[in-house]
């Protein structure tokens, strides 16, 4: 069933994305660079939240998928058609996610968290090892792709992810995931294949993260394992998604914008304190803002009555 409200929301989202796509005509320097970072984190955090939001399974491995994506572009951009690289990255990301999911998601969430915590480092070690054996070092990705192109690609991807999230939210799969998040035993007893539902969603977020990596590779110019698989990316994504709140599709976006600005500010003026900021943000979410900005918004709305309905 598509109601009038759905149509309104879809139109609003399309308008917002269209507006965001106009940004490169306004500025092509610093603001575009920040906006590209924001678009990247919006895609990553939204697709992270599609899986971790309803299930409460905290994935700490975005960097592993992202790094693989950058390597796909790094290795293939000279020989393969450019349009195919994101697809290959998506495939590899989905396969890795499926393997991780098959191993851990049949068990409890703790195993999943631990496994994903070290995954980026594991993949980095393996890639470094292969590079050492084949005598390869880091590689240059020199293309004619500009920041503007990357930005537009990311906006397109964001549109895709939002649409996917919207569709999942209305589907049987989305319903199943919400039940799993509320009570996994109940979900099992109502005949839901819980492991399958979780794996499918995790594959989705793994594939998206790999595509983002593939799209962003030209931005870094020089790619090597220690920067491509930098684990901090995973934690940034988790923080942004939770700060915004995973209860709504637009939640992560509400976390990405303020956090990216804050991060940019801190890393300019006190580059050694970024980890402290990350830690404080984690604590803030647990103790002050459970549910993130979305939770706050819902609480305020409940208190002051529903407006705009």
């Amino acid at each position: 069933m598509i109601t009038l409200r759905d149509i309104r929301n879809l139109l609003l989202a399309a308008a917002a994305l269209g507006l965001a796509a106009l940004l490169p005509f306004y500025d092509s320097g610093y603001i575009l660079s920040i906006a590209t970072t924001m678009a990247m984190f919006t895609v990553l955090a939204t697709s992270w939240a599609l899986f971790s939001g309803p299930t409460h399974y905290i994935s700490l491995s975005t960097a592993a998928f992202f790094g693989l994506g950058t390597f796909v572009t790094g290795l293939g951009f000279q020989t393969l058609p450019r349009g195919r690289l994101p697809l290959i990255a998506a495939g590899i990301g989905a396969v890795l996610a499926a393997v991780v999911g098959l191993v851990t998601l049949r068990l409890s969430g703790v195993y999943f968290v631990i496994f994903t915590l070290g995954l980026a480092e594991l993949v980095r070690q393996l890639v470094t090892w292969v590079q050492n054996r084949t005598g390869q070092r880091g590689m240059y990705v020199l293309t004619s792709i500009t920041e503007r192109d990357i930005y537009w690609q990311l906006i397109g991807l964001a549109a895709l992810v939002f649409l996917l999230g919207w569709l999942i939210g209305r589907s049987r799969l989305g319903f199943a995931l919400r039940i799993i998040g509320n009570d996994e035993t109940v979900a099992k007893h109502s005949g839901i294949d819980t492991a399958m539902a979780k794996i499918v969603l995790f594959m989705n977020s793994g594939a998206v993260a790999a595509v983002v990596g593939a799209l962003l590779a030209p931005r870094y110019i020089y790619i090597e394992p220690s920067t491509a698989f930098a684990p901090i990316l995973s934690f940034q994504v988790v923080i942004m998604a939770l700060l915004g709140g995973t209860g709504r599709l637009w939640g992560p976006l509400a976390g990405v914008i303020p956090f990216t600005i804050l991060w940019e500010f801190i890393s300019r003026h006190a580059p050694n304190q970024t980890l402290l900021l990350l830690g404080v943000a984690f604590l803030l979410i647990v103790y002050v803002l459970p549910g993130g900005f979305v939770g706050l918004y819902d609480r305020l709305r409940r208190r002051f009555g529903a407006w705009g309905q």
């Binding site: 980890l275 984690f282 604590l283 979410i285 647990v286």
Partner: peptide
């Protein structure tokens, strides 16, 4: 489960603060 998620996030935050 809720305790697990919260304690993971809280101690993770603590670990970053300590590293900082």
């Amino acid at each position: 489960g809720a305790l697990e998620v919260n304690s993971i996030l809280a101690t993770f935050g603590l670990s970053f603060v300590l590293v900082g």
